[in-house]
Design a protein around this nucleic acid. Structure first.
Lengths: 141, 141
DNA sequence: TTTGTAAAAGATATGCGGGTCCTTTATTAG
DNA sequence: CTAATAAAGGACCCGCATATCTTTTACAAA
């Protein structure tokens, strides 16, 4: 479903939303440590996210990554779109090049029903909001 | 979601169910041709399916692949299980090693709803039945 | 202005799913 | 029995996501 990059991206964004509060910044080191993912690779994903304006960063001492006000409004869908591209939700589950409502594959409608459901969720989950739920319910990231 | 191997497997099984009727056999050549997939790779997938008793084959002249009575009862879920293994539906959508109802990731319940629905469909779709729907509604395979 | 720090950037490696090729074995038609 | 045919099996290759390493750039504190 999601690529490793995308999974890391989502988890990193959520971690920042929960922990990089009140102007605090978090470095790759801590981030990679807490998420238990390879540090150099995570760094790549993070800078890709910065370029896509999904998260923010400052260099230098006491620098690191964080979420601006605007970043808090970013939805999970935007992250997926930015990292994995637009095909993640639209491509045929059987890999057919042409598969639509009018020319469906045998699994088209089943797959669509459930993907649209998830799609809808991601579309309306802003990182900031989700972060509150995570803190409240003590979820894993 | 599904690996290429698994997609090919499902499509091949469905093609056989629709076209390899009345004791007719179909060779890799035709199968690869009609499904528009690489022939040697499809051959691998097919023999894997034979070993898993998902489809049947006979060697020699007029040989090829086909579905026995028993094969017709095979469900899509069995195919997925046999090719992609049991993690296809159970692994965490964010890649967390531990993610369950009691220790959920932030997307656990949304993802579950989505996957369980599809899972249910696959579990109860026998290849033979699905093939009839495909013929009836002239679907792509 | 200098120095330490941390991200950005670029170049490079690796593992594995995906894909190919070649040889062997089984079957069946003649 | 033989020859033709088609699947089975083994060995191999390749591209890309994934991962790493090194150098450069920016910033902040003193």
């Amino acid at each position: 479903m999601f690529s490793k990059s995308c999974q890391y991206a989502i988890r990193a964004a959520l971690y920042l939303a929960v922990h990089a509060v009140d102007g605090a910044r978090i470095g790759v080191r801590e981030l990679a440590d807490k998420l238990e993912v390879p540090q150099p690779f995570l760094a790549k994903v993070l800078q890709q996210m910065v370029r896509g304006h999904l998260i923010s960063s400052v260099k230098g001492p006491r620098g690191g990554f964080f979420l601006s006000e605007r970043n808090q409004e970013v939805t999970l869908k935007q992250i997926v779109l930015s990292i994995d591209g637009p095909d993640a939700f639209t491509s045929c589950i059987l890999g057919l090049p042409v598969c639509s409502g009018t020319h469906p594959c045998p699994l088209h409608f089943q797959a669509m029903a459930y993907r649209e459901g998830l799609n809808y969720q991601l579309k309306y989950q802003a990182i900031g909001d989700l972060a509150q739920r995570i803190s409240r319910e003590e979820m894993n990231i």
